[in-house]
Design a protein around this nucleic acid. Structure first.
Lengths: 215, 215, 215, 215
DNA sequence: ATATAAACGAGACGGTACGTCGGGTCTTTTT
DNA sequence: AAAAAGACCCGACGTACCGTCTCGTTTATAT
């Protein structure tokens, strides 16, 4: 619904006074569907605007009219809103909450074109400084927010060490997920995720089990 | 020196029975130099074989003769051996050791073409399944080894919880570094690295300060 | 004007059902002009599609879109229609008619790019069996027709021996012209042509002056 | 035997002052054989020095050492000497003699690589003015000589009209043979050759049968 | 017998053109 | 006005030969 947010002329969908055809919803759907399918089937190397147009039965011009670059198409395929719909319940345990979030995201990555789209976006960005900057300052922070909020909630519950840099923790958790995605390891392995979260939450050091040596 | 390791016909440098010209070292140097410079200056989007050839004053044929794909060129630009030269001293503290390693790698990424090359490799892999598989099974494990060894050493010192999955810890630490590299944040900020390592080693949970509930 | 006759998609100029841009006449003109000029100036050895594109300010794709091979370009440069416009008057004398035709063709060969194009076509054909076959069965007969018609007319006038194989005579006359063209001797030398035609028409044998040996 | 006549350093075979290996006859044989076979099998389009070297098991350098261009190779494949061996008997009839010569040449063209080589030479020449000039002034006249001699002999016998331009007759006869060769029609069809020769010798005009109208 | 010099193979190398493909932009026509 | 069709320029792709070159081995004189 809000998909068109990133496209070039978003307002027209909202208010329109002028004459002429309105944007054809069916067309933009079939373009996005074709793009998603293509990405899934043939991978990023064969993801060409030309092929998307061919499959969608649309013209290249139409694609370029609404998505000014590959990046914009990928963003729409990514459909981050799905991800946004994840609601993290208050389990009263940060470990449980992170595990829940991680499994939810990986599930989406696995089962929708999001994963492929996300990987492709990262690839695409390495060759486009302008897009990169926009992405880093607009797109990324929005994705981090939910996790940040959850961590803050746990901190408010008194569950976390008070000197923890929450942003750093987000870096760590995001880094882990990206790494697994980029190296093709995002199976639904509860053990793996639990162990990772446990390591991070509890720390890896043995000393932490005997803290402050009171004696 | 051993850069040619990843190129197409490595044996000839070692044993040679046949006649015929040997590979021109100067040429391959100027190709790699041109490639590195180009990557640095113009980024991955403008990294074309054609341009590399132009800059190196070499012919495309020569490049293709020795590097069968962009990936192979990137691997040689990466020059992973530099990274291999890092020796992690035994500080008797895993925190110190990880901090040391992280700073050393980031320094290389910042100050040589390695960083750009590495990012570009990740991008390239997203569109080349064959290269991807080779990379995941050959290239990656070798990079992880040093960290794994250091963690094992710490475990042997009794510094780590005995149930820790070392591979998972490597995932976490690699993930963090990749994330920072891919989002353009690998300044030499000791605070950032220290805080990250501290979080991971000590854990983020407050509860960890009252552990082991001694019955 | 009808030059495009031999190109790949000729019908579109005639009837059009679909939408979309029409072929740009200016572009195709400048390609043909550039091709003709290049052939004239640098000869067939330097006649490359790349150079034609460069000179015409056109892209290679555009050339390949409309002329699928060098041969097709040459055919259009040849512009055989010019040759077709030659009208052989009925002089009442086969000798005069052949002389007329020969001079007219040689004149075109000398003064337009046709000559070079024709020689180049013959060269090109020696390495392309498919083109060769097409050329032999489609292109050649059409060229021979006019001469054949003229000979038939003379035969009908009773000017020729009734047992003459007209096709053979065409072979002889075409052969002569090709030979002169390929060996670079097509000056406007009326003597040469007249003598050749005289030899052929009257025969070279002296005995023919005492023919018919009655009984 | 005298094949090497056209190669680059012919004198060495005659006089030798220096030390060093002599030219390896076996090598040059296998090169010429490979070249001839290649020309026969794949045609002129696939006739590349590289492929000749591959087949002959020779190095490109060796080929270039002795044959400075494709043209020189073709000339040696042509092996005009074979053609030179044709001895035209004195039949006392120019018609019979021309028929004899034509059949002999066509036979050679059909049954040896000469035909292909000759066609290829003509093609090659259209893109090489220097070679062309050399060929026209050295190679061609030698080929024409035998026919010229035969015609002269007939003239001396009083068989020909005294005002005939013999060179023109050679042009006509050569033109015919070239035309048939270049259009792929050199079967051993006695009828065709006889009819052609008859047309030329007797002339095509009926009038010639009632010459000089002496009343 | 031993230099010595050429012939030779292998193959690296810088070039140039090939024919194809995708990227974007633009024009024309239809809806 | 939106969309489809598609012509067009641009530039990179990866391949194939070109002709030149170096390198090291082999072979036949000439000393």
């Amino acid at each position: 619904m809000k998909r068109e947010m990133v496209t070039k002329r978003p307002k027209q969908a909202i208010a329109r006074k002028s004459t002429g055809c309105r944007r054809n919803a069916q067309t933009s759907r079939s373009i996005l569907d074709a793009a998603a399918a293509l990405l899934q089937e043939k991978g990023y190397a064969n993801f060409t605007i030309e092929e998307v147009a061919r499959r969608a039965g649309a013209s290249k011009s139409t694609i370029y009219r609404w998505w000014s670059s590959k990046m914009h198409l990928l963003l729409d395929i990514y459909g981050g809103d799905v991800e946004k719909m994840i609601e993290i319940p208050d389990f009263g345990s940060i470990e449980a909450e992170i595990i829940f979030l991680n499994r939810a995201i990986w599930k989406i990555w696995r089962e929708t074109p999001s994963g492929q789209a996300f990987k492709s976006m990262i690839a695409e960005l390495q060759g486009d400084p302008a897009a990169f900057e926009h992405w880093r300052s607009r797109f990324l922070p929005e994705r981090r927010r939910k996790l940040l909020f959850t961590l803050q909630r746990a901190a408010d519950r008194g569950e976390l060490r008070p000197d923890i840099q929450l942003e750093t923790v987000v870096d760590i958790l995001f880094g882990y997920s990206w790494y697994r995605l980029l190296t093709g390891q995002i199976d639904d392995d509860v053990e793996v995720i639990s162990s990772m979260v446990h390591e991070i939450v509890q720390g890896i050091s043995l000393k932490s089990a005997f803290p402050a040596e009171p004696v």
